[in-house]
Design a protein around this nucleic acid. Sequence first.
DNA 1: ACTGTCATGTAAAACGTTACATGATTCT
DNA 2: AGAATCATGTAACGTTTTACATGACAGT
Lengths: 205, 205
Amino acid sequence: MALRYALLSLLTGRPMTGYDVAKSFATSVGHVWHAPDSQIYPELRSMERDGLLHGRVVPWGPTTTKTEYRVTDAGRTALRAWLAAPKQPQRTRSPMYLMAAYLEWATPEAARDRLEEHIAFHAEQLAVLRRTRDTLTDGSHPTLAHRPDTLEGPEAVHATAFKVFAYDGMIEAAEQQIAWARRGLALVDSLTADDGSWKARTLLP
Amino acid sequence: MALRYALLSLLTGRPMTGYDVAKSFATSVGHVWHAPDSQIYPELRSMERDGLLHGRVVPWGPTTTKTEYRVTDAGRTALRAWLAAPKQPQRTRSPMYLMAAYLEWATPEAARDRLEEHIAFHAEQLAVLRRTRDTLTDGSHPTLAHRPDTLEGPEAVHATAFKVFAYDGMIEAAEQQIAWARRGLALVDSLTADDGSWKARTLLP
DNA sequence: ACTGTCATGTAAAACGTTACATGATTCT
DNA sequence: AGAATCATGTAACGTTTTACATGACAGT
């Protein structure tokens, strides 16, 4: 369901072919709602069937065509309705917290590996998010920069402000995850320092 | 996949019937990995088929029976293997960040509603998490308190330490979400204060 | 001619949600 | 006798993942 609104949001910027959508998805909305290409093409079609998009067939090369999708009025209405509707919040479902809560079953080495993995992932995320956040504020963001309708005036200010807001939230969340996992490493150290009981336990059946 | 390990983790504490599992799930592992009862019963069966659990049929009342599941050695091995295996991290998929990034399409009122909803949800989560965290440290947690094998010694210390660690992470994350959403409310206020352009825009087709 | 980009998916499986469904037992 | 708890699911549907699959066009 949310994928649909992610695509709608992206296409409000400018009309695009499925390929364009799939590509720019990865460097924009994809940061908040991941989806592989194989999900995007079928969803665009289904959105066209539902009248949210209008697909115009454009010749591409001598023999082939491509489809350029544009958001319809119904599409814009649907996006607004989605934003106006109360959301039932998503319940937690985090493999990392699950692991963390039962790390006493892992060997100290495995526990450290999982925590370091977590740190590495979020550190990389953080780099991407910070870079993207900067392209938003300096106006060089590839997707936002192609929105002729919203480059000037309050619309542009608002659109950018909310994107920066969203990225800031994700950046903070990533920083928090890293800080938390570091404390986890310290905890593992403190539990292995004093005695060999942990290691010994993990060798039992 | 993770549901399986959530159940395994829970059942390492003590053998339980499906009903017991479903009930204590909600107040323990369910905080990190949500699952409805209707998913739990079938999964327990499938885990028994795979040899991770052993189900013992116990008479219950004069005519009926119940099944008590106990983790097998293979189950404990599977749990350890899961904790030792590298995890490919889950990509972001957050309706809230998606909405936040495109809030310029909502009316200011809708934007405020979504943000307040977010705050309310995480505030409630926070209360539950803090309460549960406290029952862990004072030893009154209903599920942990029933683990005869691990009530004393380093096992108990380790098991509790990691659970507290996991809850602390979730508590911080919830606090961060609330602080972030509050900044969002301030942003909405600042963007509506100066001119009427936002409101006007949302009335267009 | 070759390489990289553009273009577009399908098929099967796994996972998760929602709604529905039933009956025994124990406690008051 | 009635209420709350214990016990256990199924069926249908929707979403997401994974793996596979193909070919035209544009630039060097």
